[in-house]
Design a protein around this nucleic acid. Structure first.
Length: 642
DNA sequence: TTAGGGTTAG
């Protein structure tokens, strides 16, 4: 490197002598040779040599050119070399003091430094530098606003800085808006921001639009997001990805897939971001076949960790643990998300012991577990009734991994104790938590009370929920279900009446099943599917065969006080039974029937599914909002504990 | 010199 430097220096000095001769004949002044070499090194490398020249430049009392400095700062960001970035900062401060005040060029360099600190997550350094700048332009403000908008928990500050910026007489540009839109935490703020954008005429900017779409989607306003999207004349891949991701994240998998088809028709090629969102849509709707097709495209991107994590989750959530496991062992890299996905995936599929084995492996050779990993581990314990193990992990997670128990972990513990029937212990735990119990905790306890038929504690928990969330229909429904389970029809009726008076309706049970790239939906009690006649015929056949094996409809799962026959009818048309019949009618030899549900499976459907898996010799997999049931040879993977 | 989209739990 030394010889290279010497060579460059010699070349530069010769050129310098020539230019000095030109200077005498009246041409421009030429930069100092050190500065010229520095600029050349910043362009072509080696960059370490450029950094090494900085002290000499300072000693010579000359200034490096701002464009090269900015380039070098960017390189530090790309290579993650914080120390080098700081060295540049020190150099710039030194030269600013020695060289007499700020110039236009030094503003650019300061902006780059602020951006660099922000990208390194050193927000305080970024803000300190910003605060000490003698002048700031729209780029300086935007850099800080963007940094705050992207930092967790500092969105409000981003909005405050935007106000400050305007007070300072600096107008926001498209960069500013596209950065700050993600910081709009409420529909009102977002709407006001949208109005501002239209007022200054930036609403047709592609970047601003994609941020607008994303902001609306993140607040759950699919219609407004879709509205902004539909108005677009030109649109790029990121905009398509924004809208598809928005639908996928909001749980509208079918909508996401429709948009994906339209995107392809418009001639855009999916990239990693698109495929990740499409996979998420597949995951949400248990569209395994579509997911497998996406997997074929993923092969092109074998180093994309995010995409592979999404694929792994898709296999887990579709109940394909073999595929998930094969992918997990083949993956090029595995980060904490990959491990957490695998652990939760196994646990949700009733494979708690294996989940804990993967956790052991992770401790031995994987990354440090995080708070989400521990949620998965505790979930594994609670759903397998491993009370002692659960306590062990809960008590040791701080000491072993520095993870403070959060609400989610406490909730897992309440679930663990509650499911195991230790309701008093669960109550004691809630009393000793360092958090005020929230509605989630009480709802968990309420679920356990229902499972163990403890109406007294249930009504207490439900009352606590209704204190915190008076409009909550879940609490009232669960409470009335308990009364119904206990055949306390007058109490149940009182509860139902309150709901009727409040205009609250129980969310109907829904089940989804994929067939030939289409998703078929079944709603409890509704025979709206075009093939309903055949489905009912098939269901009757399945019921007859199940009854041969001793199936008796368990009418206590019907929630109203009706005659037995009516009760049987209501039970018969639970959405998962319709979906099972549709599945057995259409499924391929040797392939399991996969169903997704919006509510937890009821005990009668659970017993029925077990028997069908036996009489038909076919595996049935049902995913509810919390976990999976793999029915095969007459037994369920959950061990009847859910 | 500043900007937009994708993964894990509940």
């Amino acid at each position: 490197m030394k010889s290279l430097l010497k060579h460059l220096l010699r070349k530069r000095l010769t050129a310098d002598r020539r230019s000095r001769r030109r200077l005498h004949s009246g041409s421009h002044s030429h930069p100092h040779p050190l500065v010229s070499i520095f600029s050349r090194l910043c362009l072509d490398g080696p960059f370490t040599a450029a950094l090494a020249l900085l002290p000499d430049i300072a000693a010579a009392g000359v200034r490096a050119d701002p464009v090269s400095l900015c380039r070098l700062i960017k390189l530090c960001v790309r290579h993650g070399t914080v120390g080098d970035g700081r060295a540049i900062h020190r150099h710039v401060s030194l030269c600013a003091h020695g060289g007499g005040g700020a110039t236009h060029g030094s503003l650019f360099v300061s902006n780059s430094l602020v951006s660099m600190y922000a990208k390194f997550g050193m927000l305080d350094d970024a803000l300190e530098l910003f605060g000490g700048m003698p002048q700031r332009n729209v780029v300086s403000w935007t850099t800080v606003v963007a940094a705050l908008a992207n930092a967790p928990g500092r969105k409000k500050e981003a909005l405050r800085f935007l106000v400050e910026m305007r007070r300072d007489g600096v107008a926001a540009n498209s960069y500013t808006f596209s950065s700050v839109l993600g910081a709009c935490g409420t529909p009102g703020v977002l709407a006001a921001m949208h109005a501002d954008i239209i007022k200054v005429g930036l609403d047709s900017d592609v970047f601003v639009r994609s941020s607008l779409i994303d902001a609306y989607m993140k607040l759950g306003d699919l219609d407004s997001g879709r509205g902004v999207f539909d108005e677009m004349v030109t649109c790029d891949l990121v905009v398509w990805n924004s809208i598809i991701a928005g639908f996928a994240q909001s749980g509208d998998g079918v909508g996401a897939m429709e948009l994906f088809m339209r995107m392809k028709e418009s001639g855009f090629l999916a990239n990693q971001g698109t495929l990740t969102s499409v996979l998420r849509a597949c995951t949400g709707m248990v569209m395994l076949e579509v997911g497998r097709q996406v997997h074929a495209h993923v092969l092109k991107y074998d180093r994309d960790l995010i995409l592979h994590n999404a694929l792994l989750d898709m296999y887990c959530k579709c109940g394909c643990l073999l595929d998930a496991d094969a992918l997990f062992s083949r993956m090029h890299d595995r980060d904490v998300i990959s491990w957490s996905t695998m652990i939760s995936g196994l646990a949700q599929n009733g494979r708690s012991v294996e989940a804990l084995k993967v956790f052991d492996l992770m401790k031995a050779e994987g990354p440090t577990p995080n708070n989400i990993t521990m949620v998965g581990v505790l979930f594994a314990c609670s759903h397998a009734g491993l009370v002692e193990d659960g306590w062990h992990y809960f008590r040791s997670m701080d000491k072993l991994f520095g993870i403070q128990p959060e609400r989610e972990h406490c909730n897992c513990m309440v679930d663990l104790l509650g499911r195991a029937g230790k309701l008093d212990e669960a109550m004691k735990f809630i009393g000793e938590m360092k958090f005020e119990p929230d509605s989630v905790i009480w709802r968990t306890l309420l679920g356990a009370c229902r499972m163990h038929k403890n109406a007294t504690l249930a009504s207490y928990a439900a009352t606590e929920i209704l204190k915190l969330e008076p409009e909550d229909q879940g609490a009232r429904i669960l409470l009335s279900n308990i009364y119904a389970d206990l055949r306390q029809w007058s109490n149940a009726e009182k509860s139902w009446k309150t709901m009727r008076d409040q205009g609250v309706k129980k969310e109907p049970g829904r089940s989804w099943i994929e067939l030939g790239k289409l998703v078929h939906v079944f709603i409890a009690g509704e025979l709206s599917h075009p093939c309903s006649d055949r489905i009912v015929q098939e269901l009757n056949r399945l019921i007859r065969r199940a009854k041969d094996l001793g199936y008796v409809p368990q009418t206590e799962f019907v929630l109203q006080d009706l005659g037995t026959e009516q009760k049987e009818d209501l039970l018969k048309y639970h959405s998962e039974k319709l979906a099972i019949a549709f599945g057995t009618m259409n499924s391929m030899e040797g392939k399991p029937v996969r169903i997704m549900k919006n509510l937890r499976i009821c005990g009668d459907c659970h017993a029925f599914a077990k028997l069908v898996s036996k009489t038909e010799g076919k595996a049935i997999i049902i995913r509810d909002p919390v976990r999976f049931h793999h029915f095969q040879h007459g037994v369920c993977s959950c061990g009847d504990y859910w």
